[in-house]
């Protein structure tokens, strides 16, 4: 199998995921036309991915974001996001932040990793039909929030005559009842 070293890091994204394609569009726009990141949808050909990197498994690629580096290494998850932010022209300033160490911890990288992990978990709730389902805790929290939002909307509709009119007025009484 022949693998060709890419000139720029290749960011693989799920082309069927609305969240992922939106983020990919942001990365493309942030690159300002410069070839600093090569964006490619994961696609459906395991062999094509293996040509990029023999250790790249298509199932893994759909599970977690992968960045194939020109030196043949791969970064995944939060580490891939950090590398993208370090590379893009308009977020290159973050390099200093990501280089900061507090003991053995890099706080900025840790925060990005936690952010990515959270986003990856809730992607199905944000319109990704191909990203599976969230775990039970997230589903439970999401359900509770939806119920609260629904209750709030209903309450607001009921109270609208009192709070949303330019000249507050009470609900109209049925005057005909006494005529």
């Amino acid at each position: 199998m022949v693998t060709h070293a890419p000139a720029a890091p290749i960011l693989l994204y799920n082309g069927e995921c609305a969240v992922c394609t939106r983020i990919a569009a942001w990365v493309r726009a942030s690159a300002h036309g410069t070839p600093v990141i090569d964006l490619r949808p994961i696609g459906d050909d395991p062999a094509a991915l293996a040509r990029l990197n023999p250790h790249l498994d298509i199932w893994d690629a759909y599970e977690i974001v992968h960045l194939v580096m020109p030196d043949g290494s791969m970064k995944t998850g939060g580490a891939a996001v950090v590398e993208v932010l370090r590379t893009l022209p308009n977020t290159r300033w973050s390099r200093g932040l990501f280089a900061l160490h507090v003991g053995a911890i890099r706080p900025a990288a840790w925060i990005v990793d936690a952010g990515y992990t959270t986003l990856a978990e809730i992607r199905p709730l944000l319109g990704c039909a191909s990203c599976g389902s969230t775990n039970a805790v997230v589903r439970s929290v999401h359900g509770t929030l939806e119920r609260l939002a629904s209750t709030w909307r209903n309450d607001r509709r009921a109270l609208a005559p009192y709070f949303h009119s330019a000249s507050p007025r009470r609900p109209r009484a049925d005057n005909n009842a006494h005529s």
Binding site: E16, I42, G43, D44, W59, S130, G132
Partner: peptide, 12 residues
């Protein structure tokens, strides 16, 4: 199946 299908991924 499809590689982009989450159920297929879980089933693999």
């Amino acid at each position: 199946m499809s590689y982009g299908c989450s159920h297929c991924r879980a089933l693999e």
